Simulated assay, not measured.
Amino acid sequence: MSISVEKMIDRKEIMTGRVLHVTVDTVRINDSDITSTREAVWHHGASAILPLTDDGRIILVRQYRYAASQPMLEVPAGKIEMDGENPDICASRELEEEAGVTCDELISLGFVYTSPGFCDEKIYLYLARQLKQSKQHLDEDEFVNLERYTPKEMEQLILDGGIIDAKTIACFAKARPYLRGV
């Protein structure tokens, strides 16, 4: 059977929140009489940044993730504030907010979908170089610890399960051509 094309013919709004929007859609498959139901989460997207210091270390943040019920080691990242915000602007903002640095060079590494089976969230990936010390601007309810690792140490953390965050693993994989020592 060939790949199907699905067209939404009905939508039920379930929830609209600050971060996401949830619907239950009825879709028609391949312009046929076959219909199906799709639950979907709609998200404005996010930017994730791998900050590389001049001495070749990577700045990561460790923060508690409620949905996963545990602290996680991640690249700095954050949601695009409004539909249509430029992901580059989001990346620069989140780099300073979370890691307390700015950069002179922000390299786009493309993007990934987080869970395309039910969610349209797209995370734009970046490498930040030529960092300059600034100041963190954390939200009132945001608590993060900054940690620095060599690319080899980060690679080992990924292999050993010390880093289990998908956007961080994807960002590291896409940044590998720019990293020394891996």
Rank of each mutant, 00 (worst) to 15 (best):
F118K: 08
P87Q: 06
K7C: 02
L125H: 03
A48K: 05
K7A: 02
I34Y: 12
G110D: 08
L20P: 11
A46R: 08
I169K: 02
G161H: 06
W42S: 04
D10H: 07
S2C: 13
T53E: 14
A48P: 00
S36N: 14
V5Q: 15
L50Y: 06
F172A: 00
V101Y: 03
D104C: 05
I58Q: 01
I123G: 01
S69E: 13
A166V: 14
V24K: 14
E13L: 11
L106P: 06
V22I: 15
T23D: 08
N86M: 12
L159Y: 12
G181D: 04
D104T: 15
S134A: 12
T37V: 08
N86H: 10
I58R: 03
I123S: 03
L109I: 08
P71M: 11
D141P: 08
A175G: 00
E140C: 14
I49C: 04
G78W: 01
L50C: 02
Q63P: 07
A40K: 12
E94F: 03
L131V: 06
N86S: 10
V182D: 02
G56P: 05
T37F: 11
K174V: 11
F111C: 15
K7V: 15
C171Y: 01
Q130W: 14
V5P: 10
I49R: 08
I58M: 05
D139W: 13
Y178H: 10
I59Y: 07
V75E: 02
T114K: 09
G17V: 06
E153L: 04
R57H: 11
F111L: 09
G17K: 08
L73S: 07
E98F: 14
K174Y: 11
D104G: 09
V112S: 06
I158Y: 09
V144K: 02
